[in-house]
């Protein structure tokens, strides 16, 4: 019995590891494996049919389009918010930070509902939109808006603590040496925050492509037109077309795995250049 007094007996350690791994396997590992097993249950042929069908391809295209609009907008917002909050002092800063996190505590369904109340036919702007022949709800703009809302805090909440940790000295030095504001941002700030920015973009993108509840409320579920990949999965599943549903789901599960691998690489390689806060 020559173990250190601040660790546990060997059998206790092994038992704790076994219980923890068992829980993770049951709760997280099995569902992940099940996606791929169900997708290939009838072999590669039906899998490819499910993935290549025109409605599935349209859903993939729409998902890429929506993420392609929502993520860059939230990157611009995240950088602007972090710049204002980290580089300047002003009142009500902590209130602003809390408000930026607000979308995380709103149910996805409510996130969609708020845009229906604004832009739906019975909504505030509904009659005006109708008069001008414009449609936001049950159309792509509504899906984009709902996606922006649910992914709103991701980039900002990664960059704000990171830029606060980094302080202002380097920017002030560059500016006092005569660099312009834009050059300072591009050549001093951006290199400092690039890995944190990538980390935020990664999480933002995963959520943008996978969002279900908010998008489901505003989409209208028109096949081939307003169905994103998660919505397409729901339709296939409710039609008992399990192989196709899991085939499309396996694409999103693949995206999740890539996200996790890149995220782990960033944490492993550039830990000191990411914000310390856990998500």
């Amino acid at each position: 019995m020559n173990r250190s007094p601040t660790t546990e007996a060997r059998f206790v350690r092994y038992a704790l590891i076994a219980v923890a791994l068992g829980f993770l396997l049951l709760n997280l590992g099995l569902p992940l494996v099940a996606v791929f097993v169900e997708a290939f249950r009838k072999g590669i042929g039906p899998y490819l049919v499910g993935v290549r069908e025109p409605d599935a391809l349209a859903a993939v295209r729409l998902t890429l389009l929506v993420a392609g609009i929502a993520v860059p907008l939230n990157v611009v917002f995240g950088v602007a918010a972090a710049w204002a909050i980290a580089k300047f002092d002003f009142r009500f800063k902590s209130v602003l930070i809390t408000l930026i996190d607000l979308p995380f505590s709103v149910s996805p369904v409510v996130s969609g509902l708020i845009y229906v109340l604004l832009f739906g036919l019975q909504g505030w702007a509904g009659p005006w939109l109708r008069a001008h022949d414009a449609q936001i709800i049950f159309a792509v703009p509504g899906i984009v808006l709902a996606t922006i809302f649910v992914t709103f805090p991701f980039v900002a909440r990664e960059l704000i603590p990171l830029m606060q940790e980094q302080g202002r000295d380097e920017e002030e030095a560059a500016l006092s040496l005569g660099a312009s504001g834009w050059a300072t941002f591009r050549r001093v700030t951006l290199p400092n925050i690039r890995w944190g920015l990538l980390y935020g973009v990664l999480l933002c993108n995963a959520r943008a492509m996978g969002e279900f509840g908010a998008v489901s409320v505003v989409s209208g579920h028109i096949r081939g037109l307003t169905n994103t990949m998660p919505l397409h999965i729901e339709i296939l599943y409710n039609e008992y077309n399990y192989v196709a549903a899991f085939a499309v789901a396996s694409l999103l599960a693949g995206l999740a795995l890539v996200t996790l691998v890149v995220k782990s690489l960033l944490e492993w390689r550039y830990r000191d250049q990411l914000a310390g806060a856990a998500h």
């Binding site: 993770l24 997280l28 999480l203 492509m209 998660p230 919505l231 789901a249 999740a256 996200t259 996790l260």
Partner: peptide, 13 residues
């Protein structure tokens, strides 16, 4: 890395 799966895996999946 697996611990973060619920953050990365879409809820519908």
């Amino acid at each position: 890395a697996l611990v973060d799966l619920p953050f990365a895996l879409p809820t519908a999946v």
